[in-house]
Simulated scan of single mutants.
Amino acid sequence: MHETASLVATASRVLAANGHGDLVWGHASVRDPDGRGVWIKTAEWGLEEITPERVHLVAGDGSVVEGGPGARHSEYPIHTEVLAARPDVGAVVHTHPPYAVALAATGQPLLPVSHGATMFTPPDVPRFTDTADLILTEELGKRVAADLGDRNALFLVNHGIVTVGPDLPTAVVTAVILERACAQQILTRSAGGWPSWSPPDEALAKREHIYSPTAIAAVWEHLVRALEEAP
């Protein structure tokens, strides 16, 4: 089995352990180093169940090039089209984490009430509102990629999130932090009173100080260690 499949399997389990599980839905992918498509988990399995044998290499036309048995995920165009539009991106995560879905549905912007949100804002996290249905076609995948633009995250309103990175650890850490940031904002709003948040210049400074590539790699290693140490 290709070593990239092992990385996708680990990433899937890390996502599940950090609030991104949704029964058998949601997926992470990484660009094939030989340019043949994307490595992505198979359908009909939960993120927490993914092993290297439950990962496919899927070409841009949706054909399964390599990998174990099982159904191909129908939303592969999210991954193939984002990667086609973004040569700087090496990996994509699409999940349905509850706090991010809830916050996006309210129409509120993500505010820097915490360190977490400063990874994304300012400016506002972009939103895809063309449909809340599944992204099943090349055309819809292209529209998702267009709304993502050059950003690291996108709300698919009433659906889920997309996060990206130069590699899969970065895309996964970005997804984990986005969900934490959304949860912190919902908690802040629910507490009443008058919420405060960092002004734009401070939020941008915090982004630079907190989210270096070295720090993101350290967070990934922490998440993997926690996964391995879990009972």
Rank of each mutant, 00 (worst) to 15 (best):
T95E: 06
P98T: 15
G160K: 09
Q108N: 11
V93C: 05
M119L: 14
A84R: 14
V101H: 04
N158A: 11
L178I: 10
V176K: 10
G90L: 00
T118Q: 07
L103A: 00
Y99R: 10
V125T: 00
T121F: 00
L134D: 08
I186W: 05
G165R: 13
A145W: 03
A100C: 11
C182S: 15
W194L: 13
I78C: 02
T121L: 00
F128Q: 00
A145Q: 06
R180W: 11
R86N: 05
R143T: 03
A183S: 13
L110P: 05
K142V: 10
W197F: 14
Q185N: 13
P109C: 02
V176W: 09
V176M: 11
A104T: 11
A191V: 02
P122T: 14
G149S: 10
Q108H: 12
L148C: 05
I135S: 00
W197D: 04
V125Y: 06
G160P: 10
D88K: 08
V89C: 10
F155G: 10
T163Y: 03
G90W: 01
K142L: 07
R189I: 13
V125Q: 09
T137H: 05
G116F: 14
V164T: 15
W194Y: 03
S196F: 12
T95M: 04
R143A: 12
R86E: 04
E75D: 14
E138G: 09
Q184G: 15
P169D: 06
C182L: 14
R86S: 07
A146S: 15
A105V: 01
S74F: 12
M119R: 11
G70E: 14
E81I: 01
T118H: 02
G107D: 04
H96G: 06
E139K: 07
H73I: 13
Y99Q: 12
I135M: 04
A175M: 02
A117D: 00
T163R: 06
P98L: 13
V92A: 06
D167P: 07
G192S: 08
V125W: 08
A71C: 12
S196E: 12
H79Q: 07
G165V: 07
T137R: 06
I186A: 15
I78W: 02
I161Q: 12
V164S: 08
F155Q: 05
S198C: 11
V92T: 03
R86L: 04
A171Q: 04
S74V: 13
E138T: 15
A175V: 01
P123Q: 09
T131K: 04
T137S: 15
L103N: 02
P97A: 05
G192E: 03
I161K: 08
G193W: 06
D88E: 14
G192A: 01
W197P: 01
D150N: 08
P169S: 11
H94R: 07
Y76T: 03
H79S: 08
S74T: 13
T137A: 10
P169M: 12
Y76V: 08
Q185R: 09
T188N: 09
H96P: 14
W197I: 05
W197Y: 13
H115C: 06
W194R: 10
A102N: 00
S114I: 09
A104I: 06
V173R: 09
